[in-house]
Structures are given as structure tokens and as C-alpha cells.
Design a protein around this nucleic acid. Structure first.
Lengths: 255, 255
DNA sequence: AGCGTACGTCGTACACCGTACAGCGTAGAA
DNA sequence: TTCTACGCTGTACGGTGTACGACGTACGCT
């Protein structure tokens, strides 16, 4: 297993955990459990939010909840399943206000913004969440249902509705991934863009030759100068969302 | 550092490596180098293509090129820089045929397809490549220049051109990431979709309640039944690309 | 020609990861 | 009361990236 991202272990166990299958564990003998799966997931979420996904270690999580490292494995089959539970818990906690707006465009905007807010609040999600084959838990189901409801009245077929939602979420995911990468690059280099440019001036001067890369140099400079930093998240968001909605409009409002 | 994805080390060293700065290493004393940076990168690429990104280990790479593990560090500052070099080498090797088509739509389609082909040929790229703050090497510059040229004649401003390209590449990246995840899920579970559904029938029957999730159950089933597998890559590609281009058309062909 | 030394190479070691395994004490069932 | 299933734990294994210091080589200078 190269990366325990999601979906390992025997699937039924994972599903039972996701849906909190109480009947599967009728409490037999031995001492009572000292913590709960919910506490475990909550602590793992806090760990990831505070110190990043890299800080979510079985040992660190165990210490945070006050048990031994190996005890975690009596609650969760492995780290992959833990990540699944974390993602689904976040999905479940998302706000789901009723769709009041009559305009599909404003409804889809809300869908996109809600997902963006989630990914910005928990940047590590972009490293974990998969669009296809996600953890089939109650959180994802509720999220999926609510977001599908935003497409009510668009006149799209069932298949197209699913594809359109996937497309919209794909844009949000790509945007937030890029935004997060950009933020981290400026953060942990401890170097402003200007400083970086200045420090590498000698190499860059030869590399960025306007004769061999006329468009790249001109447009790259223009894109960089147009906003404060080299990559302005707000501008990219507005641009990308407008393009995405326009693309869906061509389908929804055709004829 | 949670994940040595890209961009560590002192930046000038990385840039010199990317641009093959021969003048920076005038060859002084001691024994000659037994391998070259290019061989190192080529071997790392082969390793990643054959056995996945997880197989790209400093030790494995060292053994493949016939040196000791620590010797690799005399060529490359660290693993992050190695990944940068791998990505840029792939970018540099991409085909760049001249743009002959007069239609911007077919040109952008080619841009998207070329990027999709690259990401499908090297699935590990989706785990490494960042849209923003990528390795500023000759490969990226050539790729950027060539893809910007596809926007010639669209009438877009410099800033919008950059944003539009980023938007298009973002779609490709999101699509390929999803496609790759889906493929891996069906592969390493060694279980067909039908088998999986059957095995988890008891839990799923209660979870997928049509009363609480009316749209999700109906549309999810429709989307799954409409094509062979639960997530048909071809269909999603055509849909997403059409939506993306339509979205750009609203900007390019406006008024 | 001889030598000092800068440089390439390497073995060892450290901290950390996920987790397999076996032992131990507890508490419900017989 | 005895049995036993279960929760918990310490230890250990194989893996990762890489810091450190030792060693031999071959160039540049005297």
C-alpha cells in the first residue's frame, strides 16, 4: 500500500463504523471501553486542523485521547479507515440550509461556496478526499442529497445532474488544492515573492528569456503584477466559478 | 515538513538543477561522478511508472542506478527536489506540435487531451503536481508557452488568458485524479462493483433509504446504471470538457 | 614528482511511521 | 467461584528520509 488514503480493510467493517452500527457490538465481556470512536475521530480532526495531516499519527492520536498507541486499533481497523471516518464526519457537520433561491445559478454558487469553505477550513482535506469512491457514510449521503436538491428544477436528467455536480465539485477541489499549495509555498519558505525573485535573479534572468518564451514571460508577468501575490485566490475563484456556471448554463438553458 | 511534495531546500540550488546550470559546477578535485542527474531522474521516473510513487525511495533509486543511498544526496538536495526534477522532465518531454487549427475550441481540446494523456500515462503525477507554484524549470516554461499559444486569437487579455489556462488545467487535473482514484479502488480491492454491492447488501440496504435520501438513491443508481461501472471515465471526460469549453466560450465569444 | 586537499562515496545511526504479535488483567457468563 | 472473551498495553519489525563522520581518490600547486 503506497498511501493509506482511503478505503482499506474489509469493507463491511468500515461501513459498520461509518453508520455507527450499534447492533454489531452487543457488548459482551471484559472491561468497558475507555473512549469512543466519536472521541477518536474528533481528536483526530482537531489534530489535523491544528497541526496538519502529517500530525495525525496513531501514536499522537492515542496520546491525545489518553490510551496506548495500539489501543486505537481496537476501535478502528487502521489509519485508512480513520481518515474515512474523519472525512465523513466533516461532511455530516456541514450546514444544509433549505434551498430558497429560485435561481439555479445562485443555488449552485452556494454549493460551491460551502465546499470551498469546508476545504479552506480544513486544508488537509484536499490531500485526502477523493471525488470518486468516497467513504459511503451518512455524511456523504446527506451532503450528496442536499447538493443534488440544488439541481431541482434545472430540467437535467438524472445522469446529467450527477455529472454536473461532480463537475462543480471538481472545480472547487482543484481550486482549493491550488490555493492551499500557493499558501503553503509562501508560508513555509519564509520568503516573500519579491525576496524570492530577487534572490534568484541571476538564474531567472537567463531562464526567463523573452525571445524563447515570449508569451510566458509577458503573460506570467502580467498575471503576477495584476494582483498582489503571484496567485490571487479570490480572483481565481470568481473567474473559475463564473466559467464553471457558464458552462453548466450552456447545458441547462439550451434551446 | 508533512510531505516533501515540492519546493524544499534553498531555491537557488533547485533552480540551478532544473536549468542544468553547468557553470555552477566547474569540476574541481576528487573522483569523477559515477552517474548523472539526468540518469537519476530517468531512473526515478521509471521507478514511479513501473511501481508507483511509493516505490520511489532514495534507497531503491540508489540501488537502481548502482550507488549507495547517501550518494544520491550529492546529486540532489533531497527528495522534494528530486520530485521537482521528475515533474519538469515530464513536462519537457511533452509533444508540442504547432497550432494549425483555426478554431480555439479544437486547440484547447488538444491542450486538455495532451495533459490528460500525460496524467494517465503517469498516474502518480496527480499526487505530486501542483497547479500553483510549480517547479520553475525549462519543462514548465516550454509547456506554459506552448499552451498559452493555443489562446492566440481568442481576444482575451493577458490576465484572463492565464486564468483561463489555469482553469482548463484544473479541470483536467481534477478529472484525472478522480479517474485514477476510481481505477485504483476497483483494482486493489480485487472485487468487482457488483460483488462489493452484494457483500455489503445488509448495511447498504439500511443506509440507502429512499425516504431519507430520495434524490441520492435515485440519481446515484441512475448514474451507476447508465454506464458499465459506477464511474465511467470517458463519459465524465466528454461531459466535463464540453462544460469547461462552454464556460470559456461565454467569455471568449461574448458580445 | 610529490603532496595537500577538496570532493565523491559510503556505512552507520536516528527519529519516526504503521502495525503484527503476545501477554495481562478485568468483568460478565456459567 | 471458575472460565473465558475482550480491552489494553509493551515490544518489536520493517520501512521511510536524511544527518554525520570516515575513507579513498585524483586534481592543482609547489
Amino acid at each position: 500500500m503506497t498511501d493509506p488514503s482511503t478505503g482499506g480493510g474489509e469493507p463491511s467493517r468500515t461501513l459498520a463504523l461509518l453508520w455507527g452500527d450499534a447492533s454489531a457490538a452487543p457488548r459482551r465481556k471484559g472491561p468497558g471501553r475507555s473512549v469512543s470512536v466519536d472521541q477518536l475521530v474528533a481528536s483526530a480532526l482537531a489534530l489535523a486542523d491544528e497541526q496538519g495531516l502529517g500530525a495525525v499519527t496513531m501514536r499522537a492520536l492515542a496520546e491525545r485521547v489518553g490510551v496506548s498507541a495500539m489501543s486505537v486499533y481496537t476501535y478502528v481497523p487502521g489509519k485508512a479507515e480513520l481518515l474515512d471516518l474523519m472525512v465523513d464526519a466533516l461532511y455530516l457537520a456541514m450546514p444544509r440550509p433549505p434551498w430558497r433561491s429560485r435561481s439555479w445559478r445562485s443555488r449552485l454558487t452556494r454549493v460551491a461556496e460551502a465546499n470551498r469553505d469546508l476545504l479552506l477550513a480544513h486544508p488537509w482535506l484536499t490531500e485526502v478526499a477523493a471525488l470518486s469512491r468516497p467513504p459511503l457514510g451518512p455524511g456523504l449521503m446527506a451532503k450528496y442529497e442536499h447538493e443534488l436538491a440544488a439541481y431541482d428544477g434545472t430540467g437535467l436528467s438524472d445522469v446529467d445532474t450527477d455529472a454536473a455536480l461532480t463537475h462543480l465539485l471538481g472545480f472547487v477541489q482543484a481550486h482549493c488544492r491550488a490555493a492551499h499549495d500557493a499558501a503553503r509555498a509562501t508560508t513555509d519558505s519564509a520568503m516573500s515573492d519579491a525576496d524570492w525573485w530577487a534572490a534568484n535573479q541571476p538564474v531567472l534572468a537567463r531562464a526567463f528569456d523573452p525571445e524563447t518564451y515570449p508569451r510566458a514571460v509577458r503573460i506570467g508577468a502580467a498575471a503576477g503584477a495584476a494582483q498582489g501575490s503571484a496567485w490571487n485566490a479570490d480572483r481565481a475563484w470568481r473567474f473559475g466559478l463564473a466559467r464553471t456556471l457558464d458552462g453548466l448554463a450552456a447545458l441547462i438553458e439550451k434551446d
